[in-house]
C-alpha cells in the first residue's frame, strides 16, 4: 500500500515538472504587472492587448498557414508513399527507404542548414514558401511511418476481395483501402501538424524577413523584451490543444474501458 502511494507520488511529481512552466505562463497571463515578475492582481487586459498586437497575430497566422499547408501536402505524399513502398517493387527502393529515415534521426539543425544551403544554391528567396517546403521535408517520413504501421497490419486480401467483387483499381483504392488506413493517416497528419507547430530549429534557418512564425517571433522577443500578451496567446493555444486532445482521449478511453471490461 505504501509502495503504491510512493509510485503515485512519483507520477504526480513528474507531471508537476512537465506542467510547471505552462502553469506559470498561464498564471502570469492574468497578472496585472507588465514586468511579469510578481503577481499584482487579476486582469484580462493582456488578452485585449493581444488582439491589437499585429506582429504577434501575423506570426500566429504564418504559423497556421505553414502548419496546415505542410500537413495537407505531407499527408498526401506520405500516405501514397507508404502504400506504394509497401505494394510495389522498383529499382532503388532500398535506397529511397533509407533516405526516408534520415530526417527522423539526424539532428534538426543539420536538416535546417542543408535545406538553407540548397535554397541559396537555387536562389530561392527565403519566406513562407521555403518554410512550407522545409516543414514538408521533415514531416513526410513521420507520416509514412504512421501509415505504414496500419498498412503492414492490414489484411491485404480485402483488396483482392474487392477486385473479385467487381471493383476496379481506383474504386478499390478509394472505397476499400483508403477507409481502412484512415486511422494511420489521421495519426500521421496529427503528428505532422504538431511537429510543424513545434518546430523552431528548421524554421530558424529557412525563414526570411516578414515571414516569422510564432516561435521565431517569441525567440526574438525573449531577447529584446517580452510582454505578457505572449502569455495570453500561449494560454489560448494551450486551451485549444487541451480541448481537442481531451475529446479524442475521452472517446478512446471509453473504447479501451469497454474492451477492458469484456
Amino acid at each position: 500500500m505504501k509502495n503504491k502511494t510512493l509510485k503515485n507520488l512519483f507520477i504526480v511529481l513528474v507531471f508537476i515538472f512537465l506542467y510547471l512552466p505552462i502553469i506559470a505562463l498561464i498564471a502570469f497571463s492574468f497578472n496585472d504587472s507588465k514586468l511579469n515578475i510578481i503577481f499584482e492582481g487579476f486582469t484580462f487586459k493582456w488578452y485585449k492587448i493581444l488582439f491589437t498586437n499585429t506582429t504577434l497575430l501575423d506570426a500566429l497566422k504564418n504559423t497556421l498557414i505553414v502548419a496546415v499547408t505542410s500537413t495537407v501536402i505531407s499527408t498526401i505524399i506520405g500516405t501514397l508513399a507508404a502504400i506504394g513502398l509497401y505494394k510495389y517493387d522498383f529499382k532503388g527502393k532500398n535506397f529511397i527507404n533509407s533516405l526516408l529515415y534520415i530526417p527522423v534521426v539526424i539532428p534538426e539543425i543539420v536538416l535546417g542548414i542543408s535545406l538553407l544551403s540548397i535554397y541559396t544554391l537555387m536562389r530561392l528567396d527565403l519566406g513562407l514558401i521555403t518554410l512550407i517546403i522545409s516543414h514538408i521535408a521533415f514531416s513526410i517520413p513521420y507520416v509514412i511511418i504512421c501509415v505504414r504501421t496500419v498498412i503492414s497490419s492490414m489484411n491485404w486480401q480485402i483488396e483482392e476481395a474487392a477486385h473479385d467483387l467487381g471493383a476496379g483499381d481506383f474504386l478499390t483504392f478509394r472505397k476499400i483501402i483508403l477507409p481502412e488506413i484512415v486511422p494511420g493517416i489521421v495519426s500521421g497528419a496529427t503528428l505532422a501538424f504538431t511537429l510543424s507547430l513545434d518546430d523552431v530549429i528548421i524554421s530558424y534557418f529557412t525563414t526570411g524577413p516578414g515571414s516569422n512564425t510564432l516561435p521565431l517571433q517569441i525567440y526574438s522577443m525573449i531577447k529584446t523584451g517580452i510582454t505578457p500578451d505572449v502569455n495570453a496567446l500561449t494560454t489560448l493555444i494551450i486551451l485549444v490543444v487541451m480541448i481537442i486532445l481531451f475529446t479524442s482521449t475521452i472517446v478512446q478511453m471509453r473504447k479501451i474501458k469497454k474492451g477492458y471490461q469484456v
Partner: peptide
C-alpha cells in the same frame, strides 16, 4: 500518456520561455 504529450504539443520555445519565468 496523453497528459505527457499535451505540453509537448505546445511549442518547445514557448515552454522554454515558461522556464525563464520560473
Amino acid at each position: 500518456i496523453t497528459l505527457v504529450l499535451i505540453p509537448f504539443l505546445t511549442n518547445s520555445l514557448i515552454r522554454t520561455y515558461g522556464w525563464i519565468v520560473l
